[in-house]
């Protein structure tokens, strides 16, 4: 199928700023759907609130644009009611780990077959540049004018600790890697968490002297390294990319089918 068949053309142009990394993730997502030959009416996207959440309007999937932080909880109900759907849940860093933190860890724990994509730009973009749980110490934001003192989460470690069965990380610079990891995430049975570091030149880059979109993407290129690579071994302070966990564990919808069978005994 042509790539553009997966989007709702009439709703473009999109609302994202020039240089924003979100479109790169959308692009990779469309390629993944196309490569796997996924049927549109089997696809569903559930999102929360924020810049990232607007992805759901642009894809020609069944799309549910919900409340801030609540995408995974809505998606859990939807998936359980109709397990045949292939459900994508794009979230921002604040969406997934601040207001939606509880839903995030419990979706990981349940191992329900959803593909969660955390678009981590380390800032609240839609509200104009406030610090998020991923900003980290020393970052300047509109709500941290004297530099942020909050320690950050590590989304990968959070997902691993909460029991997610597929956990991966990449960046907006590594376009083909996003598509390849997304493909693995979709094919994984159980919860998949993919963190994508995305640049927000408007609110993060500008305030923190990281430059524009190009400079920020160069940082992703230079400050990250694949898991198991010599580059990472030489410099462990780099941010690792790749698949951190991929394991089989009982999936929630399949386990629930067994509950039904036991109840009918």
């Amino acid at each position: 199928m042509a790539l553009k068949n997966y989007i709702r053309e009439r709703f473009f142009p999109h609302i994202w700023c020039p240089g924003c990394g979100h479109g790169i993730v959308l692009n990779a997502l469309l390629h993944t759907a196309d490569t796997l030959g996924l049927e549109r009416s089997s696809l569903c996207m559930v999102s929360g609130i924020g810049c990232s959440a607007r992805i759901s309007g642009y894809v020609d999937f069944h799309s549910m644009h919900t409340m801030h932080g609540r995408a995974l909880a809505c998606a859990t109900g939807l998936k359980l009611a109709r397990p045949s759907l292939n459900v994508f849940v794009p979230m921002g860093d604040g969406d997934a780990t601040a207001i939606g933190g509880n839903h995030f860890i419990h979706a990981c724990r349940r191992n329900i077959d959803l593909t969660a994509i955390v678009l981590n730009n380390r800032i609240y973009g839609m509200t104009g540049g406030q610090f998020s749980p991923l900003s980290g110490r020393g970052i300047v934001a509109t709500t941290a004018p004297y530099k942020n003192i909050d320690e950050p989460f590590d989304i990968v470690n959070l997902a691993l600790g909460a029991g997610a069965t597929f956990v991966a990380r990449t960046t907006a610079f590594h376009v083909r890697e996003i598509a390849s990891l997304l493909k693995q995430a979709v094919q994984h049975k159980g919860i998949s968490v993919l963190e994508v570091l995305v640049q927000c030149p408007t609110y993060f880059g500008r305030k923190n002297k990281e430059g524009g979109a190009v400079e920020m993407m160069e940082l992703y290129r230079d400050h990250t390294a694949p898991l198991g690579s010599a580059k990472l071994a030489e410099n462990p302070s780099l941010i690792p990319r790749g698949v951190f966990r991929s394991e089989e564990r009982p999936e929630y919808c399949e386990e629930y089918a067994k509950v039904i069978a036991r109840a009918k005994e």
């Binding site: 559930v46 109900g77 939807l78 009611a81 109709r82 509880n102 039904i260 036991r262």
Partner: peptide, 29 residues
């Protein structure tokens, strides 16, 4: 509910419960 092929889920909180209800209803429940 399981005896009638229905879904019962105990969510992580009350917020999640109401959200799951919204999601399930859109899927036809």
């Amino acid at each position: 509910l399981p005896r009638k092929d229905g879904v019962f889920i105990q969510m992580e909180d009350e917020i999640g419960s109401m959200c799951a209800v919204c999601g399930a209803a859109l899927a036809g429940a």
